[in-house]
């Protein structure tokens, strides 16, 4: 698989603060790539530079072979973006929002078909604020697919969702991946990273600490002689919760 994103020596400085401190990584076409890290690690800044929303201080970012700094408009056409909050006009309904974004990308779409794909066809005339958290995130993902992008960026897509909504969103992400779209996401949840991501970069203080697959991360740690101070249990609390409340998606 070829690299669809390559980031080389990327630096982003604000006055006297270095948010991103010389990072390099590559994302392969068709994979789900996760960026993990505590708050303030530089995840969102890195994402926003790739999304052409922030200018880089130095270094180089290529998306689908196009330099983000030199041809931001070409990059914008090829990517889909989901921001941390559901960033949509509060006074427009879902169909109207999709129609407006289609015009902004200059593409033709069938809004109802797009809503159907994220199981929101019966919310077509609803406003975003009338949706549940999970529905908002699903709509948000639908909106990233309007321009049939090669890469989509999801910033903390499951933060604040209940376990059922999270699992449902994971299913959606897997579906999008199956259609051949590369996905870059940030998350705070380790289980999400483990379940969803083919490869991970762990960031802190603007630097990348480690890049690899979840399995090699764990293997490497165990090799160093790490032992978790816990008896292995055949089930955990989440299993209990889902066993009691079911996996059925909860929505109004």
């Amino acid at each position: 698989m070829s690299n669809i994103i390559s980031v080389t020596d990327l630096v982003k400085k604000y006055k006297d603060f270095t948010a991103v401190d010389g990072i390099s990584f590559a994302v392969k076409e068709g994979e789900v790539f996760g960026i993990l890290g505590p708050n303030g690690a530089g995840k969102t800044t890195t994402l926003e530079i790739m999304e052409t929303l922030k200018e880089l201080t130095s270094g180089e970012v290529l998306i689908d072979g196009i330099n983000v700094k030199e041809h931001p408009w070409e990059v914008k056409r090829r990517i889909g973006v989901q921001l941390q909050s559901s960033a949509f006009y509060p006074e427009l309904n879902l169909v109207e929002l999709l129609d407006m974004f289609a015009a902004m990308y200059d593409v033709q779409i069938d809004p109802m078909k797009m809503l159907k794909e994220v199981a929101l066809e019966d919310k077509a005339k609803s406003y975003v604020k009338q949706l549940s958290g999970g529905q908002q995130q699903r709509f948000s993902i639908a909106s990233t697919l309007i321009n049939t992008p090669k890469v989509i960026f999801l910033d903390e897509p499951t933060t604040g969702l209940d376990p059922q909504a999270r699992m449902h969103l994971w299913e959606m992400v897997r579906k999008v991946k199956k259609s051949g779209v590369t996905i870059v996401l940030t998350t705070h949840y380790m289980d999400e990273a483990e379940q969803l991501c083919d490869r991970l970069a762990i960031m802190d203080h603007g630097k990348i600490m480690k890049i690899g697959t979840p399995a090699t991360f764990i293997k490497d740690l165990l090799k160093k002689g790490f032992k978790k101070e816990m008896k292995p249990e055949p089930a955990n609390l989440e299993d209990v919760f889902l066993n009691l409340t079911g996996r059925q998606l909860r929505e109004a």
Partner: peptide
Amino acid sequence: KALILKRMFATPT
């Protein structure tokens, strides 16, 4: 504040 403008800037408009 609601990042609506930012989301629009991610489009080629």
